[in-house]
Computed example of a mutant assay.
Amino acid sequence: MPSKASDTGGLREVVVVTMWARVMVTVNINVSDGLANRVCGTVVGIETTGYQVIIILVKFDSPRVGKDAIAQS
Score class of each variant (00 low, 15 high):
D33Y: 07
V44L: 02
E13R: 12
N30L: 08
R12Y: 10
T42D: 01
R22Y: 03
T18K: 14
T49I: 15
G34R: 07
G34F: 09
M24E: 14
Y51L: 10
M19V: 01
V14Q: 10
R38C: 04
V15F: 04
V44K: 08
N28A: 13
I29R: 02
N37P: 01
N37K: 14
V14C: 04
G34C: 06
L35A: 05
E13T: 15
V15G: 00
T18C: 07
N28W: 08
E47A: 06
Q52A: 09
E47Y: 11
A36E: 12
C40T: 12
A21Q: 06
V44M: 11
V27P: 02
W20M: 05
V17F: 00
V23E: 08
T42M: 09
V17M: 01
D33E: 02
I46P: 01
V15R: 03
V39Y: 09
V44N: 06
C40V: 10
T18A: 14
V31R: 11
V23W: 05
E47N: 12
S32Q: 08
R12Q: 13
N28E: 13
G34I: 03
D33K: 11
T18P: 07
T18H: 04
V15Y: 02
N37A: 06
A36S: 11
G45M: 08
V23F: 12
G45N: 13
V17Q: 01
T18L: 12
E47C: 13
Y51N: 12
M24C: 13
R38F: 13
I46T: 06
V23M: 02
T26W: 00
E47Q: 14
T48A: 11
V23H: 00
I29G: 05
C40F: 03
T18I: 01
V14G: 00
V15S: 07
R22D: 09
M19P: 05
V17S: 02
E13P: 03
A36V: 09
V23C: 12
V39L: 01
A36G: 07
V17D: 02
N28K: 02
E47T: 12
V27F: 05
R38S: 14
V25M: 12
V27H: 10
V31Q: 14
N28C: 08
L11C: 15
T26H: 10
N37Y: 07
E47F: 04
T48L: 03
N37S: 06
T42K: 09
V23G: 05
V39A: 15
V43T: 13
N37C: 15
G34T: 07
G41H: 01
V44W: 08
N37E: 12
V27K: 11
V14M: 04
N28H: 11
E13M: 14
V15E: 10
E13I: 11
A21P: 06
M24G: 10
V31S: 09
V27I: 14
G45L: 10
L35Q: 03
V23I: 09
N37G: 00
N37L: 13
V39G: 05
G50S: 15
W20T: 09
Q52M: 07
M24F: 02
E13L: 13
M19I: 13
V14D: 14
G41R: 00
D33H: 01
I29Y: 09
